[in-house]
Amino acid sequence: MHWQIFLQNVFGGIETGSLYALAALGVVLIYRVSDVTNFAQGEMAMFSTFVTYTIWVYSANAGFPYPYIAAFIGALIFSAIFGFLIERIFIRPTSDSSLLGKMIVTLGLILMVNGSAGAIFGTDSHYMQRAITGHIRFGNMIIRPHSFFVIGLAIVIMLVLFYMIKFTMFGVAIRATAQNDKVAKLMGVPTKKVTAFTWIMATMMGAIAGLMIAPATNVYTGMMADIHLKSFIAAVLGGFTSFVGPVIGGLMIGILDNLVGYYISTNWQTVIVYGFLIIILIFKPYGLFGEIPKKKV
């Protein structure tokens, strides 16, 4: 039945879309607080996924009963430390440089992270297990419980993040730092800590996105290329100045991507998704939910 296939594609789109959204939120969070466009977000997520994969394999070989859980917790811990170190070593020392300079730093990080991943983990492609294995049939629809896990996890992470940003003192501190870090300091906000924290959170969100997509892409040095690109499209589509925008953008890109791939052609998939972005940008230059940026003082 056609509608079932349609629904299955939409559902699949929501699944990948929620991962685009997670990755995009990480990019937007960093961009807003530290004025840095982190082009290396995808590669950092790839590296974290390799570490996660390694933990999974080792703990399975060592006979640990829940290797996936060990890997998941390992991913969170490693990516938190990873994000902290990247901010401290590469981002903080260059925080006074120009926007272009900061971009070059994160572009350089792509090469460094990708190169070291190849050197440490090799260039082979590895199978990674799903969080929940198996599948369920509804008529003609085949749905994996893993998809529910991915969507549910993404929703929980986003809700926690939105609650924190909207209602907690630290969340207001993040938004204040994003708007005017000098005045935030004058109110007692430790803006350096806020910046470090956003890098940690964004890197963790990237790592989770990587771990969740790994069963579909396999674990290899180029695994994040597509999701990273799409997450940027999602962020631009939704608007870099909003936190809700990238989520909606991510879901739209995910669904559109799947439908175009199924009904039109997988060859034209990326072209059409890009075309869609460009059309939106013609009418909404700052994205669907973006505001015209106010000059920082």
Binding site: M169, V172, A173, R175, A176, Q179, N180, K182, V183, A184, L186, M187, G188, V189, E291, K294, V297
Partner: peptide, 24 residues
């Protein structure tokens, strides 16, 4: 507490949120 020249409130935060951050 230093209240800088030119007011410099946080324009995208609500009045309450501006006050909240003051209490940091």
């Amino acid at each position: 507490i230093h209240i800088p020249e030119g007011r410099q409130i946080f324009p995208a935060l609500t009045v309450e949120e501006n006050l909240k951050i003051g209490a940091y």
